[in-house]
Structure formats: C-alpha cells, structure tokens
Nucleic acid binder design. Sequence first.
DNA 1: AATGCGGGGTA
DNA 2: TACCCAGCATT
Length: 359
Amino acid sequence: MKHESFAERLLSWYQHQGRKNLPWQQNPTPYRVWVSEIMLQQTQVATVIDYYQRFMQSFPDIFTLASASQEQVLHHWAGLGYYSRARNLHRCAQILVQEYQGHFPLQDQKAMEALPGIGPSTAAAIIALSSDQRAVILDGNVKRVVARYFALEGWPGKTAINRLFWKKADELTPATRAADYTQAIMDLGATLCTPRQPQCSQCPVKDHCKGLLQDKVSQLPSPKPKKALPTQERHFLVLNKNSKELLLQQRPQDGIWGGLWCLPDFTTREELEAWLTQTYPQARLEHQGLEPVKHVFSHYRLLIRPWQAHLADISGIQEEAQTYSPSMAPTTSLWYNPRQPANVGLPAPIKKLLEGIQL
DNA sequence: AATGCGGGGTA
DNA sequence: TACCCAGCATT
C-alpha cells in the first residue's frame, strides 16, 4: 500500500491546525489576495494586518485604487517599508484597469509575472489562493520547509540552489486543492517549521523529514555566507632608539586596540615618512621593510607592514609624554624596552612582531 | 549573478 | 546585535 504523500499529510494537518482567520482569507478575491501578498513581501503577518484593514477600507476594489493618487496610496503604506511595493501596486492597478478590464490574467502566469511588483512566487500565490489553480510558490516559509524536508544544503540566494528549491517545491505541490495546499505550506513554515525553535514533534511530515532524520534542522536553510573579510594594510613604525628602546603610542579609546599601546601606524609609507621627518628629523628610516604580519579581526583582515628607523641618542630629547596627530585627540607616547617588558598592554600581533625584531 | 530596498519582531 | 520576514526590480 502506498503511503500518504507530503501534501496529504500537510493538508490534513492544515484542516485542523491551519490559520483560517487572517483578513485576506475572508472572501479571497484576486484583488484582496494580491494586496495582501504585496504587503506580506518581506513583512511579517502581525505587522501587515492593521495596514491591510486600513488599505481595504480606503481602496475596496481595484478601480478605486487605480483612480487614487499615488500620494494617497503611499500614505497608507507609510511605516511598512519597501515603498516601491506601493508604487508598483498603484501602477499595476492602473495597468489592470486599462489593459485587462480590471481583471488579473489568472490563466497566464507569465502575464502575471510581467505586472509590476509581481514576481514568480507572488503570481503563483495569487493564482492558487484566489482561483484554486495549481501554481508553485517559493517564499521564505516554503524555502525553509523545503530545505529541511529534503536536507538541502546551500544558500538559496545562489541561482543554482534557488533553481533546485523551485524544483523541489514543484515536486511537493499536489495537482488538486491548490488554495488549501498553498496556505497550508505557508502555515507550516510560519507556525511549526520556524527559523528558530521549530516544533518538529508536532509536524505532520516529521517521519519523512530528512533534515530531522539527519538532525540538521537547526542548520537549515543554510545562511547567507559571510562575505570574505576585507583586507586593510597599515604601515607601522618601529622607531629604535639607541638599539634599546622603541616608541609606543597609546591608541585612542575608540576603534581597534582602544587604549592599548602600539607602534605608531599610518595609512601609507609616505605618511609614515612625513611624520617621522617632522617629529624626529635625526632618525634614519630603513628602505627595506620588515616582514609583514597578518592579523584577523571579526570584520576585517589587517596586514601589518613594519618599517624600522634608527635614532641615535641626543641628550635633551623629550622623554616625557608628547602629543601627536594634530587632528586627533591627544595621545601619549613612551619609550619601551622590549628586554624589560613594561606593564603595558600590547596587542598580540604587535607583541609577536616586536619579539622578532633585532634591536 | 549580485544588490538595494526598510521597518519591525525576536532571541 | 544579528537575523529574519508570504520577494522583486535593477544592475
């Protein structure tokens, strides 16, 4: 005997546990479904409800909407975000009135998708929910259900992955009961198969969910990959006095290594050289840089380029704290003897750099 | 094939 | 704070 399909299990669950009282589910005409679908793009149900009620009160049908001013429409959208949705909605209403006698081309999904603001998933949702014809949706809920049910790895933002998700969503979609199925799979994603703390024990398809069977539910769908860390390179001055001490500066409280002591650092070698010439004219800068040091922060990669300079002792040189960086907050500096490590906080990569330096 | 759009809810 | 939300249009 053939076991129950995904759709059959889902539909019987929906019959008892599904949401049936959302405003747009009452009298689901194409117009009412359309407005709800546009509002619900990237916006949660709880947020939409009040906006939807007010919108329907003011624009009860497509002709009212088409003849309204854009300003009126946008006013009803204020606070919802993604305002191009409202402009497209308004424009779409005018197109439908002018070109389609005020009716959606429900028999032609491609024609639906050609309308402003209506993409593949919204077109399918309008068709299925308002006319009960079979059409495949793939919104955030369905993506999550599909990723888990088939244990699909990969971020759906990638084109190839996205195509696979559409294919799997298509496979799950039954030939009949299009409206109920469409609402059911969204309800599953919204109420049980949630992004966090999904209630798998209540799930009507848990017995065949690969993600659950493989204990991967919490890792699916795969998150958007963190983009590669940008690399920043900065030039650090190793100013060596009498082959004994190095110049350190205390960093500003804000930014990386805030408050720690560190080598003076600059955006470019030229900037470093200019500062050195002005501050320690007697210093001699080596032309060959030292070996670069790499360091990784949470949000970028830092390439440390050290340059060594030598300073012969001149009695009377200012030993006390001095200021630098005229445009920045005053910063103190000190001479540091690496052979007698003082009680100052050095960033790890700088400490490592100094350990490798011959004075 | 990747980005911008936007405000709100949630852990 | 970071992530996610009934995605689409644009580049």
